[in-house]
Design a protein around this nucleic acid. Structure first.
Lengths: 109, 109
DNA sequence: ATACTATATTCCCATAGGGATATATAGAGC
DNA sequence: GCTCTATATATCCCTATGGGAATATAGTAT
């Protein structure tokens, strides 16, 4: 398996995708989709965000391939494209756990 | 191994850390550090960024625990704290590979 | 003390992006 | 055709943030 080389252009592409994920509102949307596909309105209700903003967030997530869409009459169903988001969340959660541990150790000293 | 629950507060913490990584300049700095510890000046030379900006980026990366620092006389040596950044880059590169593959398939049809 | 170097910080500017509101588009049903 | 609903887009406001220049700070050397 050949890895893509980490050139500045690739960093730019990675950064663009990380920016898409580095937003609590979008993480919340993706987390909701983890339970299964949802319409925009359902996502609005689940997240408490405004409809226009949910649409904008979904557009970003769709453009960068994090969600898929399926139109059915008036409704548009969005679904997770893959689980890479949560692989990344797991890595970050491990870091958070380590931070906590380090802080506790510091307090204990 | 108990996982941290993905609450809105946790998403906010994750998002804060992803924002730190979602910046080409900082990815470039981290990539340079992959080869070993470097002084600020060396990072300025390696990245072509201004000294003030490198210092600012390093401050962010240090605050969020992505780099460590070691002072030695006038110099401050920065080093990678762990490899989670590149675990994430790997995930993103896999995604980029898939995107390429999908685009090729689309062109072939 | 002064002079020099490495790093950090501050200030300013310009841009990007999120939220709210209003409007536009698309499809269903009558 | 008209109306209603779901989604998308446009506009405005405001904040956050990256880059550059200047300045401050810290350490070395003489």
């Amino acid at each position: 398996m050949t890895r893509i080389a980490l050139t500045p252009q690739v960093f730019s592409l990675i950064s663009e995708r990380l920016k898409a994920l580095a937003e609590p509102a979008r993480l919340q949307i993706l987390d909701t989709l983890r339970k299964g596909e949802r319409t925009v309105t359902e996502l609005v209700e689940a997240t408490g965000l405004g409809q226009a903003n949910v649409s904008k967030h979904l557009r970003i997530l769709f453009t960068l391939g994090f969600v898929e869409r399926r139109k059915e009459g008036l409704y548009v169903y969005y679904a997770l494209a893959d689980d890479s988001v949560f692989q990344i969340c797991d890595i970050m959660c491990d870091r958070l756990g380590d931070e906590l541990k380090a802080r506790r150790k510091l307090l204990a000293s």
